[in-house]
Amino acid sequence: MAQCNNPIIEVNGLAKRVPTQGGELTLLQDIHFSILPGEAVAITGASGSGKSTLLGILAGLDIPSDGEVRISGRDLFALDEDGRALLRRDAIGFVFQAFQLLPNLTALENVMLPLELGDRHDAREQAAEILARVGLAARLTHYPRHLSGGEQQRVAIARAFVTRPRLLFADEPTGNLDSATGRRIIELLFEINREQGATLLMVTHDASLAERCSRALHLDAGRLT
């Protein structure tokens, strides 16, 4: 795993505020941190502390009210929406708590999707290969509704890694699973992450999970503590 001194993620003075009927609500404020390539970082905190909002902003899925985010030195919000989408396609993988598979696509088609978006010609082969890697070689043509929660999350992990991303964002990846299945999924996630040498940023409120990461960022009411 190659480590170098240039951070892959740099966050400076990040803040997020949303207007509500009762006035402005601050979700995040004064966030500063950086993450080096190959690190595995947990973002922890209580419900409503702003963990998922932070992850969403780091992935360019939402726009901050203040501050900047640099991915591999590039200012994420200097890019337009399509520019950020392109960055995600080329460099970022996602695993969600609710799996977020497309119900009308088979397991194989779900995994092919990011490759097809990138116009890759070997999408089918690559997708089948990684599905075999996560132990779902026999489930390629199954639709999400025919898969168990654990299997769905394996498909999601396969989809996240199939593009060999430099960064993997995981949002409570075991939140919808029982503890035994959750453990197996986490093993798989860390295993493939190691194989591919990606930087992992994981939102979790599970302390034991956070301990498996190289360090943790703790959020409390929108601030890093």
Binding site: L61, A85, L86
Partner: peptide
């Protein structure tokens, strides 16, 4: 929902 997932996976407008 599909649109949100596709955007997350890097689909352009």
């Amino acid at each position: 929902r599909e649109n949100a997932i596709m955007r997350t996976l890097g689909a352009g407008r």
